[in-house]
């Protein structure tokens, strides 16, 4: 049997691995560039600032932007205090034990629940049981269940990274526990917490399955949170799937990808910047 020289075979494997990695990154750039080439020419101020006309065949996407903002706002309004509160409890008020295990299991499991199941759940509870129908409120609440685990995890990590000594200093100055948390710990952990929130905004922007069953897909400009609304991602899905208008679909996709790129990159930059500053 012939055996390859180990140095040579390492060279071959290394090249192969780099080719695979390169093509993966290539796929990513291809996706982004393809969407931009097809979609960016469709963008204009009018596209962003007028409402869709004729099911989205013409006009712009203003109503969908507004619906997206509403939904994310509602979701964060509920998920942030719950997530941050959980993180504070886990880090400051309890020791590792059965209770923290249960809470962590719940968080991890919730993170793994697919969006279609969350959509079913939101539909059963908010749309039907509570009788709110398809509405931004139903959608936002369901979305908050999706964001909760991310916010808990990132907040917990950043609170844990605050040096224990800061707490001791505050205590030794006679500052109570809660004030120590709000005035010393949370300000020091803020960058990480904000990064977590920003990343969950990016996730919400691209989400469809959760929203389509809970917020519906009305194209009207939403005037209250009890109305149905269509987000950017849902709008794109409907445009593309029903073949309503390819140029409009590409334009919407470009906005989606652009938003997600900007949000992710800025979150990443802030984190890098702050990590440098602290170390």
């Amino acid at each position: 049997m012939m055996r390859l020289n180990p140095i040579l075979s390492q060279k071959i494997i290394k090249t192969l691995l780099w080719i695979l990695t390169g093509s993966t990154i290539g796929i990513l750039f291809f996706i982004i560039i393809y969407i931009f080439i097809k979609g960016l020419p469709q963008l204009s101020w009018t596209f962003l600032s007028t409402n869709p006309v004729d099911m989205g065949r013409s006009g712009g996407i203003l109503a969908t932007i507004v619906s997206t903002v509403y939904l994310i706002g509602i979701a964060l309004f509920f998920a942030t205090p719950l997530g941050l509160g959980t993180a504070i409890y886990l880090t400051e008020y309890t020791r590792e034990g059965l209770i923290t295990k249960i809470i962590r299991f719940g968080t991890e499991s919730l993170a793994g629940i697919p969006s279609i199941i969350l959509g079913l759940f939101g539909f059963a509870i908010f749309v039907i049981a509570f009788g709110w129908g398809w509405s931004l409120l139903s959608g936002g609440l369901t979305l908050s269940a999706m964001l909760l685990p991310t916010i808990i995890r990132t907040s917990e990590e950043s609170i844990l990274s605050v040096p224990q000594e800061y707490r001791e200093v505050a205590f030794s100055l006679g500052v109570g526990k809660w004030k120590t948390i709000t005035r010393v710990v949370l300000p020091a952990a803020l960058p990480g917490i904000v990064t977590g929130i920003v990343l969950s905004i990016a996730r919400s922007v691209g989400e469809t399955a959760v929203i389509i069953f809970t917020a519906g897909s009305s194209l009207r400009f939403p005037s209250s949170i009890f109305e149905s609304g269509r987000t950017l991602a849902v709008h794109f899905y409907i445009l593309a799937r029903e073949g309503i208008s390819m140029p409009m679909a590409y334009g919407t996709a470009a906005i989606l990808v652009l938003l997600i790129l900007i949000i992710n990159i800025s979150a990443y930059m802030t984190m890098r910047f702050l990590m440098k500053r602290y170390s």
């Binding site: 504070i88 886990l90 969350l118």
Partner: peptide
């Protein structure tokens, strides 16, 4: 805070039940 901390597991239970 203890109450808030059970939100995730609460939502999970609620999902299961529904």
């Amino acid at each position: 805070l203890t109450l808030l901390a059970f939100s995730a597991i609460g939502v999970l239970l609620l999902i299961t039940v529904f």
